[in-house]
Amino acid sequence: MIELKQITKIYGNKKKRTTALSGLNLKVEKGEIFGVIGHSGAGKSTLIRCINLLERPSEGEVWVGGIELTGLGKRELQQQRRKIGMIFQHFNLLSSATVYDNVAFPLTLIGTPKNQIRKKVDELLSLVGLEDHRSKYPAQLSGGQKQRVGIARALASDPDVLLCDEATSALDPQTTDSILKLLLDINRRFGLTILLITHEMHVIQSICDRVAVIHEGGIVEEGPVTEVFLKPQHTVTREFINRDASGAEGEEGLRLAASVPRPTWAKLVRITFLGAKTYESVLSQVVRETGVHFAILQGTISTIKDVPYGKLTVSFEGDSGQVEQTLALLKERELDVEVIG
């Protein structure tokens, strides 16, 4: 649905040039929710604005729905942009227009008949839960309500793609979760392709199918969220995961646990459970079989989108052969086992 080929974006002139994106390649499949995460200044906003050519790349090709946007004239590009909705961090609503008129605005611009506009806006306000706020102005709305207006407006032209530019970063955690649930519902209900950029791993973990990590204008890691989240390869990816509050506390807890004196034959192991195995008694079954003693030093259970996962940091104590047998049996049961000390 979306494909970026060798995208480079350079700002400035010969005397002072800043490269925001450098030879970036990215592919988003139809109907998926794809997340791009990166630090401030990594190139996230430039990337998303290049997709609808609000920023024209210095080099490379932008393809959306099988059409190369970078090769289109002005009129053809305007037509294709109607198939790409966009929601913004700071909402970008018309302050002097009502909720109804904000949602109707894209349709008014293209001369849609009033009766069709009324029908469409009514449907969208119902979808985002704002049917009782149609006559209010943006100043009378909460941040979450403003973003719901932004989402309804972005959907007014029946787009195939929805771009989300830090759509939840101005919201509190509870409101963020409600907006993410709404985006997930829209994706499932309409099969809409959603690409969102964020600096929050929680957003990626909650609704995305795949994720790309952007750093210094390039993609440094990419893959299914479960794979990238549970087995991060790049330093930047690990930073994002460990920056999460629970991750920071977990790292400190692990450091303290590792400092406790243990027998020389003990092994410190991180075990990752995914899916239904998260709730199965795999560990207790295996240690009963091998006779190894163990202590759980740290543990978490959570979800990645709809998939449960668990992480345990365990100290195994016993005969070295028995410990190795324990690790082998855990791996046979399709658990991810990593010796960390």
Results as ranks from 00 to 15, higher is better:
99 V>Q: 07
110 I>L: 10
59 E>T: 08
322 Q>C: 07
141 L>F: 11
199 H>P: 11
142 S>K: 06
169 S>A: 11
19 T>E: 06
129 G>I: 01
126 S>N: 14
171 L>T: 04
171 L>G: 04
210 R>F: 12
109 L>D: 02
209 D>Q: 14
72 L>A: 09
302 S>K: 13
232 P>M: 10
299 G>K: 06
180 L>D: 05
95 S>T: 15
255 R>G: 09
298 Q>Y: 14
22 S>H: 07
175 T>N: 01
105 F>S: 12
319 D>Q: 08
57 P>N: 07
130 L>R: 04
332 E>C: 03
43 G>M: 02
158 D>N: 15
315 S>A: 15
292 V>N: 10
158 D>W: 13
226 T>M: 14
40 S>G: 06
274 L>S: 12
129 G>R: 01
145 Q>V: 03
45 S>E: 02
16 K>W: 00
9 K>G: 02
171 L>W: 02
156 A>N: 12
327 L>P: 03
232 P>W: 07
25 N>K: 04
195 L>Q: 05
46 T>V: 05
8 T>L: 01
19 T>K: 03
259 S>C: 06
18 T>V: 12
335 L>S: 06
291 G>H: 10
126 S>T: 13
331 K>I: 05
147 Q>I: 03
336 D>P: 00
334 E>T: 10
208 C>H: 11
52 N>H: 11
77 L>I: 12
24 L>E: 03
295 A>F: 13
70 T>H: 10
90 H>K: 09
228 V>C: 14
322 Q>D: 15
111 G>P: 05
17 R>H: 00
65 G>R: 13
201 M>V: 15
95 S>G: 08
202 H>E: 15
42 A>Y: 04
110 I>C: 06
111 G>N: 04
46 T>K: 02
102 N>A: 11
165 D>R: 03
214 I>S: 08
96 S>C: 01
194 I>F: 04
96 S>V: 07
192 L>E: 09
131 E>S: 14
77 L>R: 09
136 K>N: 11
81 R>V: 06
310 G>L: 04
68 E>S: 14
108 T>K: 14
200 E>Y: 08
225 V>S: 13
65 G>W: 12
45 S>Q: 02
77 L>P: 01
44 K>D: 02
168 T>L: 00
245 A>N: 08
300 T>E: 13
88 F>Q: 05
278 T>Q: 07
168 T>Y: 00
292 V>T: 15
22 S>N: 13
248 A>I: 06
45 S>Y: 01
225 V>D: 11
75 R>Q: 15
87 I>L: 04
110 I>A: 11
164 C>Y: 05
318 G>Q: 09
112 T>A: 06
233 Q>P: 00
206 S>R: 15
163 L>N: 08
146 K>L: 06
16 K>E: 04
306 D>W: 01
45 S>H: 02
290 T>A: 12
58 S>K: 05
219 I>A: 09
215 H>F: 11
113 P>M: 01
45 S>N: 02
198 T>W: 08
245 A>D: 09
199 H>I: 07
285 Q>K: 15
226 T>L: 15
136 K>I: 05
176 T>G: 02
231 K>A: 12
77 L>T: 08
194 I>N: 03
198 T>Q: 08
115 N>Q: 08
93 L>R: 11
9 K>M: 00
332 E>K: 13
225 V>Q: 09
69 L>P: 10
178 S>M: 01
28 V>F: 07
119 K>H: 08
49 R>I: 02
52 N>Y: 12
96 S>W: 06
